[in-house]
Design a protein around this nucleic acid. Sequence first.
DNA 1: ATAAAATACATTGTACACAATACAATTTTA
DNA 2: TAAAATTGTATTGTGTACAATGTATTTTAT
Lengths: 147, 147
Amino acid sequence: MIRDGGLKLENQLCFSIYAASRALTKKYRPYLDNLGITYPQYLVMMVLWEREVISLKELGNKLYLDSGTLTPLLKRMESMELLKRERSKEDERILCVTITEKGIKMKKKAIEIPECILKSLNNEISFLSELKSNIDKLLLDMKVKEE
Amino acid sequence: MIRDGGLKLENQLCFSIYAASRALTKKYRPYLDNLGITYPQYLVMMVLWEREVISLKELGNKLYLDSGTLTPLLKRMESMELLKRERSKEDERILCVTITEKGIKMKKKAIEIPECILKSLNNEISFLSELKSNIDKLLLDMKVKEE
DNA sequence: ATAAAATACATTGTACACAATACAATTTTA
DNA sequence: TAAAATTGTATTGTGTACAATGTATTTTAT
């Protein structure tokens, strides 16, 4: 006898995460529209607000994105003057991504976004932070398994 | 004084979910490559394995996807002969999506995928199922807020 | 019965994702 | 030290996502 409960949509953890990811990203949209950037671009900005310079490779490691995604994304952000793209002097292979003044200034307008999102979720902070740490645990297990 | 801990990448629930979603989807790839379909196409197949006929609208409601995404996706699946697309006789606006014999047969090859994925995660089932129900709770809250 | 509104889907345009491939700069190796 | 392997990005091609818009069909209101 063949059991197929595992093939039902509502039993799929991956589908829940996939759907939640898109729904959550959509929540950011009105705020990010104000800044003129998309969610993946917002992620890049968050990294640059922490570290003004970063190589493409390290940026990719942080965001789990490869050059196929990041190269055109960063070019768009460069044309918006949020960052600069230039080769490293020491090693011409390395692309250095540097935040601009305009990019730095954007942080002031972005500062309130996380709180707005949290409020709009109107869930207990403790529930959300426990959820995050459990997802991070899953993510870590998947990273380890990769090697 | 401006607090910006909320703008740090590692504090972002949304980023964790976004990264986990892509990592998990990637886990399906080798199995789905065997079937010749992508992850979103697999989701459609799961729905059709439960219900041989469904309208585009209802399919979109289940997967949280709109016609802009589903129309070309279903056309590709139709050209693979996994499903048929035809207008309803009663209401010409409605597009009926029907699984084909080939689509039904694919279920046999797919039946083992959920278990393979679960094993590859090598986490406690109870941890994963609790994680899923917490994500579903978040998702539900976001759905309710929409209206 | 008919104009207006609503519905269901398709199309267009932009922006990711990502596998696969290409390529130039650097390191390693024979 | 020249060839081979490695590294870091860029490019190409396919497939989503999704907002905005267009269109044909059906329903509703007059």
